[in-house]
Design a protein around this nucleic acid. Structure first.
Length: 640
RNA sequence: GCCGAUGUGGCUCAGGGGUAGAGCAGCUCACUCGUAAUGAGCAGGUCGCCGGUUCGAAUCCGGCCAUCGGCUCCA
């Protein structure tokens, strides 16, 4: 007999060799029916697995993320089966579970069309009903290679060859379909119900552009049909929040064929942008930053000196001036270096925190452009901090705090990643290790959890990245803190120490917003275009009911303007309903209706964005209300 | 850059080998109105660009450009 400890702490005695399914049945038939897999000592296993020794056991159902992942993975096998039935000769890539569903990569002469997806989905439904069991088999390495080779599954053979020598090679079979797979899987295809094929896209084999591009079919899969419907509805909702759509509707910015990736800011977008810059300057002044501005075009020798010519050329734009090579800056740092070198620095001057709202240009691949989230020219809210080695940790922590403070003001959730040395980089291993450890230490001090991104650092140093989600849950890097021992070296930066000798300062590159463009895009999606009052391009619109209220309305407008409130007056001869509807459509935080009653009492009828109810209040009370919200940067709960 | 899809008035979209259509927005006129669309009229497009097939192309074919969804890359 062995002891099986369940999730609730209870212990069951069962004979060795009992399968997990049998244990589940002994707990309840309902559980046995709902079970898709199980966690044995933390490892996800099939229900068919026989328990041989004492174990911690957690039965997984579709109520858990782990359970859903198993089901989604099984659904990807179902797709592969359907594809090979309908398009014989298709070679298989890989087919994992992902958030909300799964994908499977295929190599086929045939190009899959949206109509094919419908047919495949129908075939999947048909196959699912057949109640095929997912049966696990194990093969010796040589046998497995031969098996897949014979079937022309060259990618599977490659995968097997790359498995460690001692790896257990397992295969899963459902009906006429067999796939190389570590598993686990649900018991039967019958458990696969709420799925939908979504799209087909190109994807390089093993994610490398050096490899062949395969066709990736994406699908959604959920525990039940209503969950799938809910998710589809959520996707529709997300489209409404899309910053590209809202940016145009709210007249914030535009993009044109004539300038791909180079955004145009409209007047309202500029108000938003200027407000963000203003806030940025205030907060940085408080923290003893100074601000500079460096040129956009600098000559070739500078970029050679900085290493950009060697490591960043593909992303840069070039021009010639008087027969000499120049480059448009893709980063602000070299300019900052020259500024540092304009005089002798003392250790007493350090740290120098030198900010720059710098406009940079980078050549991004045409297929990568995406609204304001991925552009070819953008303004970084940059700063370069020159400091003593002993100040590193303290400075990094201060920046982490600063970024956290900013993101909290906007209500952003974020996660943190640490990116380490990339292949194409400069400097010694020792410097990189020191720098990486400093970043780790700062994160540890703050108790921040982070994910490591191996090889994703800048060419001159490792970095801490702050990621924010867009409306479709894709994450975008915004803030970043990069520790750099290389630039000071390349530019021979020095300071005079206590000992009267020259020493090498250390440098940090950091941004808080990341780029104004990306940050604005994320703000639009985060608030669904209904900005908090302090950010809103128009804060108040005054709506007179008829012509005879125009004069009072103009007075209200003038008084609000005097208080530095961004106010508009809608004097058109339209019905009040019409004007209100428009103010709502434009997501203006406050609509002030003024008619006879208000005119008489020196009051306004206040209607907030997204609310039905109106409140009549004295104009001076309204001013107090709105100014308080602006000053506290209050985030309205209505982002509908 | 790669794979696939798309490109018709400011916006959303219909149409489709015989010389363009709707709604919204815009403009004009009337209505002076109390919390999400008053009515009537007018104007607006060489159907992304270039080339080919054809008596005739917005429609079919090819190339290019841009956009969208991915891959790769990144603030």
């Amino acid at each position: 007999m062995i002891k099986v400890t369940l999730k609730d702490g209870s212990v069951r005695q069962v004979p060795a060799g009992t399968t997990i399914r049998e244990v589940a049945s002994s707990i309840s038939q309902g559980l046995a029916r709902a079970a898709v897999a199980a966690k044995v000592n933390g490892r996800v296993e099939d229900l068919n697995t026989a328990l041989q020794e004492d174990a911690q056991l957690e039965i997984l159902t579709l109520d858990s993320e782990d359970g859903l992942a198993v089901m989604r993975h099984s659904t990807s096998h179902l797709l592969a089966q359907a594809v090979q039935n309908l398009f014989p000769g298709t070679i298989l890539g890989i087919g994992p579970a992902i958030a909300n569903g799964f994908y499977y990569d295929f190599d086929s002469e045939h190009t899959f069309t949206p109509e094919d997806l419908e047919k495949l989905e129908a075939e999947m439904k048909r196959l699912a009903k057949q109640d095929y069991k997912f049966e696990r088999g194990e093969m010796a390495r040589e046998q497995a290679i031969e098996y897949f080779q014979q079937r022309g599954e060259k990618y599977k053979v490659e995968l097997i060859n790359d498995l460690p020598e001692d790896a257990q090679i397992s295969i899963y079979t459902q009906g006429n379909f067999t796939d190389l797979c570590a598993g686990p899987h649900v018991q039967s295809t019958k458990m696969l119900k709420a799925f939908k094929l979504q799209s087909v896209a190109g994807a390089y084999w093993r994610g490398s552009e050096k490899n062949k591009m395969l066709q990736r079919i994406y699908g959604l899969a959920f525990a039940k049909a209503s969950d799938l419907q809910d998710y589809l509805y959520k996707l529709e909702e997300a489209k409404r929040r899309d910053h590209r759509k809202l940016g145009m509707e709210l007249d914030l910015f535009s993009l044109h064929d004539e300038a791909p990736g180079f955004p145009f800011y409209h007047p309202k977008g500029m108000v938003l942008r200027n407000t963000l810059e203003e806030f940025w300057r205030e907060e940085h002044q408080k923290r003893d930053y100074v601000e500079i501005r460096t040129p956009i075009i600098l000559n070739r020798s500078l970029w050679e000196q900085s290493g950009h010519w060697d490591h960043y050329k593909d992303n840069m734009y070039f021009t010639k001036i008087d027969e000499q090579d120049f480059a448009v800056k893709p980063m602000n740092c070299p300019g900052g270096m020259l500024m540092y070198k304009t005089k002798i620095r003392s250790y007493r001057d350090l740290p120098i925190r030198c900010g720059e709202l710098g406009l940079v240009h980078r050549h991004e691949l045409s297929g990568a452009l995406h609204g304001l989230l991925r552009v070819r020219s953008f303004t970084q809210d940059d700063a370069h901090i020159f400091m003593l080695p002993s100040q590193i940790i303290e400075e990094i922590i201060a920046i982490i705090d600063l970024i956290d403070y900013f993101y909290k003001v906007f209500g952003f959730e974020y996660h943190v990643e640490l990116s380490t040395r990339p292949e194409d980089s400069m400097g010694s291993d020792e410097d990189w290790e020191t720098a990486t450890n400093a970043l780790k230490e700062a994160l540890a001090t703050k108790g921040i959890e982070y994910k490591i991104n191996p090889g994703d650092g800048a060419f001159y140093g490792p970095k801490i990245d702050f990621h924010v989600k867009d409306c479709l849950d894709r994450t975008w890097q915004c803030g970043t803190i990069q520790l750099d021992f290389q630039m000071p070296e390349k530019f021979d930066l020095t300071y005079i120490g206590e000992d009267g000798e020259k020493h090498r300062p250390v440098m940090i590159h950091r941004v808080v917003y990341g780029s104004l463009e990306r940050f604005i895009a994320l703000l639009i999606e985060h608030y669904a275009g209904a900005f908090p009052v302090w950010l809103s391009p128009i804060q108040v619109r005054v709506l007179p009911i008829s012509d005879r209220h125009n004069e009072y309305a103009e007075r209200v407008k003038a008084i609000l303007k005097e208080e530095n409130i961004r106010v508009e007056l809608d004097q058109r001869r339209e019905k009040i309903n019409y004007k209100i509807r428009e103010a709502q459509t434009e997501k203006i935080p406050f609509a002030l209706v003024v008619g006879d009653k208000e005119m008489e009492a020196e009051s306004v009828s206040v209607r907030r964005y997204g609310e039905q109810k109106t409140t009549i209040m004295d104009l001076k009370d309204f001013i107090f209300l709105i100014k308080t919200e602006i000053d506290t940067k209050s985030i309205s709960s209505k982002t509908v």
